[in-house]
Each structure stands twice: as C-alpha cells, then as structure tokens.
Computed example of a mutant assay.
Amino acid sequence: MKISTLSLSVLAGLVLTAAPALAQDAAMVEVAESEQYGQYLTDSEGRALYLFTADTQGQDGTEPQVSCTGECLDAWPPYYTQGQPQAGNMADASLLGTVDHEGQMMVTYNGWPLYYFVRDEGAGDTNGQHVESFGGEWYLVSPEGERVEE
C-alpha cells in the first residue's frame, strides 16, 4: 500500500492538533502540601480544591448530590472538566469521577464534588479551609479523599 507524503503530513497534523486539545480539556487533580494542613488536592495550577459537607458524597453506587446553588456557587465555583479528569502528582486516579451539574461535568474525588474558593488568589492559598457557610462546612480534600482536619 502506497501512502503519499501529503497524507502522512495531514495525519501527523491531526494527531498533533488533537493531542493538546485532549490534554487541555481534561481537568487535572494533583496534591500539594502545606505546613499547616499537610497534603491536600489542587488543580494543575496549584489552586486548592474543597469539599462541602452539605453535599452528598457519592458512594456504593449512589450519585453525588450538589447542594451548593445560587450565591453559594459565586463564592465556591465548581471545578469543571471537559473530559475525564486526570490524576497528576500523587492523586489517586481510582478516586476521580464526575457528576452532572447544570449541564456540565463537575469533578469528584472519592465521591465528593470539588470546588474552588473565590478568596483564594493563587497557588498555595487555603483560605476556604474549615469555613462555615451556606448550610455546611468547607474543607480541603486529602489525597485519600477525606476532609483535611486542622
């Protein structure tokens, strides 16, 4: 079978353009560490991720339930993904999942929906740890998928 140089160039171009798009679409969950809280989950940019105790943890075949709505979502934006979330540095891929939230895929870890906190300005900020608001408490998430205790 003869394959033209043009066909190979087109095929190579498709592979090269598709690969970065897939990587950019999938949310990455990694693990960071602080002196105060120990290890906790972050996104690929080092921004802390939180769980909400008013949510229902998905486990034993049950779907996670998101309780944060309205103004709560303004303060605690969900961590969404366009593809299957990926486990990065020290995160456990078997604990990753998603739940449908308002027509988007929200990342879950050990069945807990994951959120950001708007008062965290960048990597290493953990201002949302053990905050009580919107009918529950907010905690950093450990690599084991449990809330980080102080």
Score class of each variant (00 low, 15 high):
S67I: 02
R47G: 02
Y79H: 02
D92R: 02
D92K: 08
V29I: 14
Y40R: 12
Q104Y: 03
E45H: 14
D55Y: 00
Q57L: 12
G58T: 05
D100Q: 03
Q57V: 07
D43Q: 03
M106S: 03
T62I: 12
V66R: 05
V99N: 01
M90F: 15
M106A: 10
D74R: 14
S94G: 14
A54S: 14
Q104R: 09
S44N: 15
T62H: 13
D55L: 06
M90R: 15
Y80P: 14
E102G: 07
N89G: 11
Q82V: 06
Q86H: 06
W76E: 00
E35T: 09
G46D: 10
D100T: 01
E102M: 02
A93C: 11
M28T: 15
E35Y: 13
Y79I: 06
M28K: 09
D92Y: 05
G38L: 02
P77K: 14
P77Q: 13
E33C: 04
G61F: 14
G70Y: 09
E45M: 14
H101A: 12
G70A: 13
L73K: 11
D92T: 09
Q36W: 10
M28G: 11
W76F: 08
T81F: 00
V66Y: 07
A87G: 02
T53D: 07
S94V: 12
D60N: 07
T53S: 10
A75P: 01
L51K: 04
M105N: 14
E30Y: 10
E33I: 08
S67A: 15
G58E: 06
G70S: 10
V99G: 04
D100V: 03
T53C: 10
Q82W: 10
E63A: 01
W76A: 04
P78Q: 09
P85Q: 00
P78N: 05
S34C: 01
D43W: 04
A93D: 13
T69M: 12
L51G: 04
Y50S: 00
Q65L: 15
A93I: 07
A91V: 00
T62P: 13
G61E: 12
Q57W: 12
A48Y: 04
E63S: 03
A48S: 07
V66C: 09
R47C: 01
D43G: 13
D74G: 11
Q82L: 08
F52E: 02
D43H: 07
W76R: 00
Q82N: 10
V99Q: 02
H101P: 12
G61W: 12
L95F: 05
M105E: 12
Q57M: 13
T81S: 01
G103D: 02
L96E: 01
D55C: 06
V31S: 00
Y37Q: 06
P77C: 14
Q57H: 13
Q59D: 11
A87P: 04
Q39W: 11
Y79F: 09
A87E: 08
L49P: 05
Q82E: 04
T81M: 01
V31N: 03
